[in-house]
């Protein structure tokens, strides 16, 4: 009985398709898939740096140092001072494992292009010195931030925010955000792949399709949230969240870092 219906296999389906696509330069789906893949890779391996004793720094101290350094760089008008911070940063980077070092260094040229594109037209407004100074400072800040990003994971960040006495609800939201960022990126990655595989020609309603993708993602998000809530309720969630504020002990590298930062601050004001 069942097999009978396959006798009506339509002609077009039993003969090979004679299709030649039109040439079109449109690779944004592939691009986005690449970006999502990069994002997903962040969730997997970053344990390497933390296992190195030298870099097992207290995230809170690190964030404070990072912000202080950005602030000092941003305010400084002294080329020697900028130079000193550059040296300090590169020294720190030099102590990282090779892989992390490369990720930080790889960002520099890309960033330089962006900064230059932004600043170059202003040659007409100011002088070369100002332009160079701006580029140097912006680039330095990027390196400072990259260093922080490369030595801290999502989970370190949460610990830092707890230390900063963010309201529990915000920490809870951030906690869920990070967990679900992985799940949603995986979904979006699969959806983008699926769309790419079926994009065999010209899509005249590209925005429609892409928007549908995000619409579905939102609906899935919403139903996931409801499921998650029932799971939480089943475990006795009452609407209150308490976090134990874990104490991270300071080690030698934290103290060194703090001393260097204090030294840089005093240097700045002299």
């Amino acid at each position: 009985m069942k097999n009978q219906k396959y006798l009506n296999m339509p002609d077009w389906l039993s003969s090979p398709e004679n299709y030649s696509p039109v040439k079109q330069k449109n690779t944004f789906l592939q691009q986005n898939r690449g970006r999502l893949l990069n994002l997903l890779s962040l969730f997997s391996d970053k344990t390497e740096t933390t296992s190195q004793p030298l870099n097992r720094q207290n995230s809170f101290i690190q964030l404070l140092t990072t912000i202080t350094l950005i602030l000092l760089t941003s305010l400084s008008r002294n080329i020697s001072f900028i130079w000193i911070i550059y040296m300090y940063q590169f020294l720190q980077i030099a102590l990282l494992p090779k892989l992390n070092m490369l990720t930080i260094l790889k960002r520099i040229p890309i960033n330089l292009v962006f900064v230059l594109l932004f600043i170059l037209p202003s040659f007409f407004l100011t002088d070369a010195k100002t332009v160079i100074f701006f580029v140097l400072k912006t680039n330095l800040i990027l390196i400072i931030v990259s260093y922080f990003m490369n030595t801290n994971t999502f989970f370190d960040i949460i610990i830092v925010l707890k230390k900063c006495y963010f309201p529990d609800i915000i920490i809870f939201i951030i906690d869920i955000t990070i967990k679900y960022l992985k799940i949603l990126s995986e979904s979006l990655y699969a959806m983008t792949s699926a769309m790419e595989l079926r994009s065999v020609g010209v899509n005249r309603h590209q925005y429609q399709s892409l928007s549908n993708l995000f619409g579905s993602l939102y609906l899935k998000t919403k139903s996931t949230a409801l499921e998650m809530y029932s799971a939480m309720e089943a475990r006795g969630f009452t609407g209150n969240y308490h976090f134990t504020r874990t104490k991270q002990r300071l080690n030698l590298s934290d103290i060194t870092q703090t001393c260097i930062t204090i030294f840089l601050i005093t240097l700045f004001f002299n």
Binding site: T177, I183, S185, F214, A225, G239
Partner: peptide
Amino acid sequence: VPLLGIASSLSFLIMMFN
């Protein structure tokens, strides 16, 4: 609560999708 967290991740993804 969970919805807010998941919405943040959605917002993050919207901003990174070209």
